[in-house]
Amino acid sequence: MTEEYVAQRYAHLRRAAFLMCGDWAQAGELARATLARALTAPDVGDPDLWAYGDLMAAFKPSHGRREHVFVAPSEAGERGAADADAGMGDVFTVLVLDALRRLSPKCRAVLVLHHFCHLAVVDTAEVLGLDATKVTEYEAEGLAAFADLLRITRPAVTA
């Protein structure tokens, strides 16, 4: 694994972490720690799978991490109310993150890995240590819950 890989994958890993935790600062910290470990790991095999697995291990319930809803970056706060599009984007982000937060961590991880990171079901199962059937069940459960939540909140977003 090289610095070039790090430069290519850092942004994507941070986004995945952000969807999991809802905090850009924490997401950046977790992504940096994961890639630093990946640089020093002797044999990582598939670097993407290794990095996703290391990143998702940070969100296991046993770690007892506090759930974040959304922490806006400082730049977003400084933009002020004048930028209406940006403000609306923040509201949408809060709603999505809140919907994700209501899912179980594994269900959330399945949605992020399969639908955001575009991992196959088999790879998602390998990263999370689940079998493929369970991944499919989590995905169906998550999509249904997510659709309900978005349907309820969409009027507020589009108002």
């Binding site: 986004r15 969807l19 970056p73 982000t93 978005l150």
Partner: peptide, 16 residues
């Protein structure tokens, strides 16, 4: 939906 939620992403800075 998930990509749009990440729209307000802060700059990477000296992360690498």
């Amino acid at each position: 939906v998930l990509e749009r939620a990440c729209a307000a992403e802060p700059p990477i800075g000296d992360a690498v």
